[in-house]
Design a protein around this nucleic acid. Structure first.
Ligand SMILES: [Mn+2]
Ligand SMILES: [Mn+2]
Ligand SMILES: [Mn+2]
Ligand SMILES: [Mn+2]
Lengths: 225, 225
DNA sequence: GAAAAGAATTAGACTGGGCTAAATTTATAA
DNA sequence: TTATAAATTTAGCCCAGTCTAATTCTTTTC
């Protein structure tokens, strides 16, 4: 059996590998896990001993074929829990992360499967990230058009937001923006500000262009909810 | 903050104190926690240092006024989770214990309160044990009449079963007996066997008198579900 | 193709929770 | 009342996961 900490390392390696598509460096993992580098080295050795990662000393680490499904299992738990918290327990999408990050290690697969069933086997979590199936198949994360790729007057549906920044998530939901919300782009300034009018909201919402570029959004006709 | 292990010790002390109504001996706690006695001594010292228990060396341990509410919080989590698993996720009452025993340490009070709300603030868990309120008030455990206190021909409602023995729980639910089930007592032999006819079951169920004496049951008219 | 800078690892220590074996205290029984 | 038995605690060890300080690779840069 693996400790919760080990599972979090595997999940972190999975995420970082997804981003950079290369071996994950000790320093990057240390930063992500919020520990010092020697802690990472020693944990990585333990994971390597169990054949969960392949460690090339001084060169970085990557998940093995044994490690990947374990990471995916945790990610499935995490995203199903997030979805359950928003859909059944009235959590906001800014509040779900911490609760899910603890519980993901302690629920059984049976528990995960049961809530998946109750939710109707959802394909994505509240932030739009794909949920692996019970067989641990995962669809590619959405990296299509973003809010910044559209033009004034366009109406788009919010597909996916980065889930790391709770302040941003809170700001968005306070202004009526969730996954699936339809928004019209009402202004794009030369100095990098994007203004949106979310469907059903009283007021428009302004976002820095950098943020807009991190939010996936599709034209209305495609990808119905 | 307390570790999950510390919380389990506090819960164990609470239970054992409830049973014996006296200081809990090291040996008893060691047996219950399934560890060796020196482990208990060292843990008890840590708990005493934090003022969660009062430890009289060589004489046993008891919860302090600081320790009691913490134990009750965990017990609330545990019993709410058990109730949630049976009522919303189709678990049987024999399967809930392990899942709840892990999760109880990792759900937030917010999570507990939300599921309590969804369940309609239930008073008891699936085994009939009382659930502390959000304010940590707990009603006295049912210790009224048992199955062995009634007579052939009586019809009673199952109120509470001991939740330690998963085999017994499985046996009972396999034979159509749950909390709230109405049963008629059809036979009581001189050699200590009690036979019941559960409402809606095909066949009667036989139990040793010793077990029957551990199951609370009220005559039908009283305590409606 | 060195030398300096940067990244990673090793060394050694600490904390939490467990264990075994030995010592000590309390309870029981002669 | 003293001797033995039983319960408890102490002593000293281990493992997991972290840390700081020191060392060793790698990469840059001149
Ligand atoms: Mn986690
Ligand atoms: Mn998410
Ligand atoms: Mn527990
Ligand atoms: Mn119970």
């Amino acid at each position: 059996m693996l400790s919760a900490i080990m599972e979090d390392y595997l999940k972190a390696i999975y995420y970082l590998q997804e981003e950079t598509d290369d071996r994950v460096r000790t320093s990057v993992l240390a930063e992500y896990m919020d520990v010092e580098q020697p802690s990472v080295t020693s944990m990585v050795k333990k994971l390597a001993e169990r054949d969960l990662v392949h460690h090339e000393p001084y060169k970085g680490v990557e998940l093995t074929d044994t490690g990947i499904p374990i990471a995916l299992e945790i990610i499935r738990h995490h995203r199903l829990l997030e979805r359950y918290l928003t859909d059944h327990l009235e959590y906001g999408w800014a509040e779900v992360h911490d609760e899910a990050d603890r519980l993901e290690h302690h629920i059984s697969n049976q528990f995960a499967d049961r809530i998946a069933e109750q939710l109707g086997d959802p394909a994505v979590d509240p932030h739009g990230d794909p949920i692996p199936t019970a067989e641990l198949d995962i669809s590619a994360p959405k990296c299509g058009e973003t809010l910044a790729d559209h033009h004034v007057g366009d109406s788009v549906r919010i597909e996916r937001v980065p889930d790391e920044d709770a302040d941003l998530l809170r700001y968005l939901s306070d202004h009526g923006i969730h996954r699936g919300t339809e928004v019209e782009i009402v202004e794009v300034t030369s100095f990098g500000m994007v203004t949106l009018d979310p469907d059903g909201a009283d007021e428009p919402v302004a976002l820095p262009e950098k943020i807009a570029r991190s939010i996936s959004a599709q034209p209305l006709s495609e990808n119905p909810s």
